[in-house]
């Protein structure tokens, strides 16, 4: 009896230390929350600066926005040491349009964060960046693969299609913890899956992983200790030496 209690106590102690020192900070830390990555930057792809000339406009289409997309982010770098020109970010969805002006004066590589009014529903959108200044500016982006394996979204500059993409993402403006995002995380996991996968499967499965797996494996070990105590096997390699020699 004492033996399996010792095993359970040790397992629970290790779990408690891990949960308190590792899991809890990881789950509770407030961090940026991605709403949708319109056009990420794959690591193997060459990083480029897509030129946006004075009075020019870059447009990405189709991008996807959802009810959590209340901030757009993209990277820019003005030429040389000059201050960056003012920009205008606009978003067109079937439900309406919005545009936000970004002040100039930034220098070096800068991440631009544009506050938006999140759409009321998921929608395909056209996102455009317009240069309102007199100087050209580079927008961070990537080349696209030669085999056109990732043709979406398409980037145009003043109406002409480019074989490049700008790296644009939509975020939630407020930072939040992973724990608070569990419901939306599980919801996302059921898309692009067989139709049978839904909340009714994902939620119970999550509970089974978090509670059922530890419970069943700990129970298995405790039960094994209990059965061994009842059977008292002797002389095997599997038990401790001082017991085998009893």
């Amino acid at each position: 009896m004492r033996r399996y209690r010792g095993a359970l106590a040790a397992a629970c102690a290790v779990l408690a230390v891990g949960v308190a020192g590792w899991f809890a900070p990881f789950l509770l830390e407030r961090r940026d929350a991605l709403a949708s990555a319109a056009s990420p930057a794959p690591p193997g792809r060459p990083q480029v600066l897509v030129e946006l000339p004075a009075s020019g406009q870059l447009c990405l289409e189709p991008t996807v926005v959802n009810t959590r997309s209340d901030e757009a982010r993209f990277g820019v770098r003005p030429r040389g040491s000059t201050a960056g020109p003012p920009l205008r970010f606009s978003l067109d969805t079937p439900a309406g349009s919005q545009s936000v002006d970004v002040a100039g004066g930034y220098t070096g590589a800068t991440e631009i964060r544009v506050p938006l009014a999140a759409p009321r529903a998921e929608a395909f959108a056209e996102a455009c960046i317009e240069n309102l200044g007199d100087e050209a500016v580079g927008v961070r982006g990537t080349g696209i693969s030669e085999d056109l394996s990732d043709p979406r979204p398409t980037l145009t500059r003043d109406g002409r299609t480019l074989r490049q993409n700008v790296t644009l993402s939509f975020y939630e403006r407020a930072r939040s913890s992973l724990l608070s995002r569990v419901p939306v995380t599980l919801e996302r996991m059921s898309l692009f899956r067989p139709a049978i996968v839904g909340w009714w499967l994902v939620w119970p499965l999550a509970f089974l992983v978090v509670l059922g797996v530890p419970a069943s494996t700990l129970w298995a070990l405790a039960r094994a200790f209990g059965d061994d105590l009842a059977a008292r096997p002797r002389g095997t390699l599997g038990d401790s030496p001082d017991r085998s020699d009893e």
């Binding site: 010792g6 095993a7 397992a11 102690a13 494996t217 599997g238 401790s240």
Partner: peptide, 26 residues
């Protein structure tokens, strides 16, 4: 774990299982 002295072995077994659970869940 089973080769450890009788009083220590259950604690070692439990600690190993607890560590494995942590790694899996993480």
């Amino acid at each position: 774990a089973a080769s450890l002295p009788r009083r220590v072995a259950p604690y070692a077994a439990g600690a190993l299982l607890g560590g494995a659970l942590l790694l899996q869940l993480a």
